[in-house]
Computed example of a mutant assay.
Amino acid sequence: MSYEIIDRMPTTAEFTAVTAAVGWQHAYDPDAVPASLARSLHGVVAVCDGAVVGVGRVIGDGAIYFYLQDIAVVPEHQGRGVGRALLTALERWIATQAGPRSFVGLFAAGESVRLYEQFGYRRHDDMTGMFRVGPR
């Protein structure tokens, strides 16, 4: 199989299909997805045989803070370097935008931690990632 990595934001339908395929369908308010994608700094898609099989995006303020978000690959295409290719494309774009003291962060779980470590991401003992869902 051949994959093409394209620098563009996924459509709402593409994003929803890929994130549902990896089990994230309940993580997002479907009504908020179009606005979230539109407000992202940059996006990439992985295409195989004309279909989007992977997505990734960068969110943040575009000056100091950059966060890798929603990097996902349809399970049938995992383990073939697609995630690495998406991450490489996002990293290449960040390198054109971020200054030498910019913060580039992400949340990672499971097997994805090893991939991000290969790109220089590390856990820091003096920092704790935290989050909550919804307004208080």
Rank of each mutant, 00 (worst) to 15 (best):
M9P: 02
V44L: 04
S2I: 08
M130S: 07
V133S: 11
R114G: 12
S40T: 12
H77Y: 15
G60W: 05
A89I: 04
H42I: 02
A85F: 03
D29C: 05
G54P: 04
F107P: 00
G79M: 02
V33L: 08
Y116I: 06
G134L: 12
V44H: 05
G60L: 09
A35K: 05
T96R: 12
Y121K: 05
R122H: 14
A46H: 07
L68E: 07
T96S: 15
V45C: 13
R114L: 10
L41F: 07
F15E: 10
A20G: 14
G54Y: 02
V55N: 11
Q78M: 10
V53H: 02
I64M: 14
R122P: 00
G81F: 00
L106H: 06
L37Q: 01
Q97F: 00
G56Y: 07
T12G: 03
E111T: 12
V133M: 14
L115I: 02
V73G: 05
A17I: 00
F119W: 10
H124L: 14
F15R: 07
R92A: 15
P10W: 06
G60S: 08
Y65T: 10
P34H: 05
E111A: 14
G56Q: 09
R122A: 15
D61T: 06
I5K: 03
M1S: 14
G60T: 09
Y65G: 06
G50N: 05
V104L: 15
F103H: 14
R57F: 10
A72Q: 03
P135N: 12
M1Y: 06
A17G: 01
A20Q: 09
V47L: 06
G105C: 04
V113M: 05
